[in-house]
Write a protein that binds this DNA or RNA. Structure first.
Lengths: 177, 177
DNA sequence: CCTCTATTCCCCACTTTTTCCCACTTCGCG
DNA sequence: CGCGAAGTGGGAAAAAGTGGGGAATAGAGG
């Protein structure tokens, strides 16, 4: 069953020659639950650290909201325009076909260096799409730095529960096949 | 399907000898949905950074409003008037033919340095038209700053838990001027 | 005022790309 | 061992993109 709260786990799939890839079934369900709330599909854009970020329509609205306020006026500073361009131009709305696959545009595949094998990663409110090899490197690297990064990124002083709970229920079940 | 929120993505097309280009199908649909609300077509004018700005009739009304008020600014009145003149004088309403192509007037093509290959870019509430090579340069330039800015913008938009939000600030602060 | 020319507009035709659908394989589960 | 769900591949239909002919229109020049 899907975790109601957010996306967790990692799933390995293959891109075919047309650039299509199956959305992991677990993620698909969460995506469908938002039907009527903004269409069926995922907004995919260039993420950080050479991967793609994918959001459900509802989450996407929240993300664009903050980008919009970065430069609310179309004739704002040059930097603001550049950022807006980069952000919106690299995004795409990907709708699944009857088999639950989405087509990832060439420009996005190139941006994340996706080849044949890709990995979908649930990261709470977004899904990340990695080239399989790149993900292995990132994962390895991440494991080493895990504790150190956690200490910097999370506030270990106060809200221990929230951070711990989340990792507790995900870990064992969702391994890559 | 159309992205419900605004224009996103990038599409490369070719100008023919008559100065026509296909409007990307994704954008065309959004344009059509406004029929009856102000006609079928795009308002195209000189944009910033050597590209063209294109708006649907509905958006155009909003933009003219904001340009008008900008011009009232007491300190920038001279520049504002100049900008206003340029903006409106070079604007053209381009209606698509049966194939979904619009004819971009020679003066606008020259203003944006459009040659054969052009790129349409969705930037939320406007469409930008770039010469293909110029866009590649712009994109390359923008990418450097992109990750830095994205770290901040994406954090603000997501539905992050309290711990992350509290420390998202300190994590990225050092990298922002 | 008429004619000639250049431009615009409206189709038709062709090619490429995208979308849709069907079918096969694999895997998990009872 | 069978069944259904998930993942993958590929062919066919539909849509999108592109090129170009020729009628209609407008403008310049005689």
């Amino acid at each position: 069953m899907v975790s109601p709260a957010g996306f967790i786990g990692q799933y390995r799939h293959a891109l075919d020659e047309k650039g299509r890839v199956s959305v992991p079934a677990r993620f698909r369900e969460a995506m469908e639950s938002e039907e009527g709330e903004g269409g069926l599909g995922l907004y995919v854009t260039v993420g950080l650290d050479r991967c793609l970020f994918a959001y459900t329509p509802v989450r996407w609205r929240a993300v664009t909201q903050s980008v919009r306020t970065t430069a609310r006026h179309p004739f704002a500073s040059r930097d603001a325009r550049r950022f807006q361009r980069q952000f919106f131009a690299s995004a795409a709305f990907c709708e699944p076909d009857a088999q639950g696959r989405i087509l990832i545009p060439e420009s996005l595949r190139a941006a994340a260096g996706l080849r044949r094998d890709v990995v979908f990663i649930g990261v709470e409110d977004r899904i990340e799409v990695w080239d399989a090899e790149a993900w292995i490197r990132e994962e390895t690297q991440g494991r080493e730095d895990y504790e150190r990064a956690a200490e910097r990124a999370l506030d270990l002083g106060g809200d221990l529960d929230a951070a711990t709970r989340r990792h507790g229920d995900s870990a064992t079940k969702e391994e890559i096949r």
